[in-house]
Nucleic acid binder design. Structure first.
Length: 434
RNA sequence: UCCUCGGUAGCUCAGUUGGCAGAGCGGGUGGCUGUUAACCACUAGGUCGUAGGUUCGAGUCCUGCCCGAGGAGCCA
């Protein structure tokens, strides 16, 4: 066949030319002698106009009987048309049916409940909004890797099957592992990133992480992706600088490359445009004081609840660092504050508009003795951390890093109310399928 | 694990004081040459999550259970 196969995203280059689409029909409107076929191919959406008399009669009547999501090969001429949302439509001259479903497509044109949509996630992905979310997710991941690569970071893939090692003893998924008892799905790549930082200087891990916590909130998944940079000889301050540069870069890249996707989601881009470094800073101490003045019942020494984070971020117009939490509420590996024994040199980066924590980072404890003491305080299985402690035995060094939750960043950038739409197949406590 | 809310047609939901089970969308049939979640007419479609209980009578009131959602704790 001499007519070229073209993607919908490239149609503008083929104005007034005859082309062929391989596509699905996501909707159809019809009069007696004209059909409007709404077509999509993953790169975009276009309306095919089918006029009686301009295609073979059997094809015209067959088009009448097409079900939603029929797969088609459609030939026609690309026309500019003011009435089309994309500016173009296709004057159809030939329709070849690849597959016409024999059952009605479950996802209709009207609203659906979240339970139904999640049960049909494999089909829900075909909708325009989900295409926009996934394109923005891809841009966020791409931008993060691009920034880190261009700034001299080495990608180090950390293991997913691990021994009993992680942020804490709770919330580990167990997997039978031959004669060695149980392996555990990684909660974080950080401890491995620290080992890699001692070997390679500036590194990052990027991969899925797993937490078997029974969280049921708009901010939690049991399987989620993290970008975890770790840098030798960076302190707490250097670490925050890296975080704000990275987040600024990501947001700018999405604004530059994904304006159509943001519009498709109805995202107000004004708050994103403000999210350029430098970000705001507040200490944990000051944040608690501010929250109490604003009516929160938070007690000094406890971590913020979701509502506290929301209230706090609403006081600022761009991302906010909260620094130096009490060590009791933070992980064992965080560096003790030089002037305050009760605090650690850490930071949470809270996204604005009530989205809350997207990054948790810290300078790491580099003293062998203090680290062992913390492992014992938190009653962690000391033998599992033997190799990790070696990093303090052989040339210990000031170093810092952080974990950025990809799905939380996607939710914020897209303006989505819930994290479950930010990953193709979300895993939550009560959902393992599809 | 705890708290709150929900489960009625394929989907989204309404259902009054306990008194004949409803609408829109989707499906079917017919009509329509510019529709934008097309429209118009007709039509089919129900074990009201489940098991008990109260009652002359339960979608509606009570109890247990199942499933889901939102939140808490925990965290990115």
């Amino acid at each position: 066949m001499s007519v070229p196969w073209v993607y919908i995203s490239d149609l503008a280059k083929h104005e007034e030319k005859e082309i062929r689409l391989k596509c699905w029909m996501y909707n159809k409107r019809s009069s007696g002698k004209i059909h409007f076929l709404q077509l999509r191919d993953g790169t975009g959406f276009i309306q095919g106009v089918v006029l009686k008399g301009e295609i073979p009669e059997d094809q015209f009547s067959a088009a009448r009987n097409l079900w939603l999501e029929a797969s088609l090969e459609v030939t026609g001429v690309v026309r500019r048309d003011e009435r089309a949302p994309s500016g173009f439509e296709l004057s159809v001259s030939c329709i070849e049916i690849i597959h016409n479903p024999t059952e009605e497509y479950p996802i209709g044109k009207k609203d659906h409940g979240i339970d139904f949509l999640l049960d049909n996630r494999h089909l829900w992905l075909r909708s325009a909004s989900q295409l926009a979310v996934m394109r923005i997710r891809e841009r966020i991941i791409w931008s993060a890797r691009e920034y880190l690569h261009d700034n001299g970071f080495l990608l180090v893939d950390s293991p997913i099957l691990t021994g009993a090692i992680g942020e804490g003893a709770s919330g580990l998924f167990e997997v039978p592992y031959f004669d060695m008892g149980n392996a555990y799905l990684a909660q974080t790549g950080q401890l491995y990133a620290e080992a890699a930082a001692a070997a390679f200087g500036k590194v990052y891990t990027f991969g899925p992480t797993f937490r078997a916590e029974k969280s049921k909130t708009r901010r939690h998944l049991t399987e989620f992706w993290m970008v975890e940079p770790e840098v030798a000889f960076y302190d707490h301050i250097d670490n925050m600088k890296l975080q704000e540069d990275l987040v600024s870069y990501i947001v700018q890249q999405v604004l530059k490359h994904c304006p159509n996707e943001l519009e498709a989601l109805g995202r107000d881009t004004a708050p994103l445009e403000l999210s350029i470094a430098p970000f705001h800073h507040i200490t944990y101490d000051d944040a608690v004081t501010m929250l109490q003045k604003l009516g929160s019942s938070i007690k000094y020494g406890t971590d913020f609840g979701g509502e506290d984070e929301t209230i706090l971020t609403q006081q600022f117009d761009k991302p906010l660092f909260v620094e130096c939490y009490p060590k009791e509420v933070k992980a064992f590996y965080m560096k003790q504050h030089p002037d305050r024994e009760d605090l650690v040199l850490c930071d949470d980066l809270l996204a604005p508009e009530g989205y809350g924590e997207i990054i948790g980072g810290s300078q790491r404890e580099d003293s062998l003795d203090l680290l062992i003491a913390r492992i014992r305080e938190q009653k962690l299985p000391e033998e599992s951390y033997a190799w990790y402690l070696d990093l303090r035995r052989y040339g210990t060094f000031v170093h810092s890093g952080f974990g950025m939750g990809v799905e939380r960043v996607v939710a914020w950038v897209c303006g989505l109310p819930h994290i479950r739409e930010t990953i193709p197949f979300p895993r939550t406590i009560y959902r393992l399928n599809p």
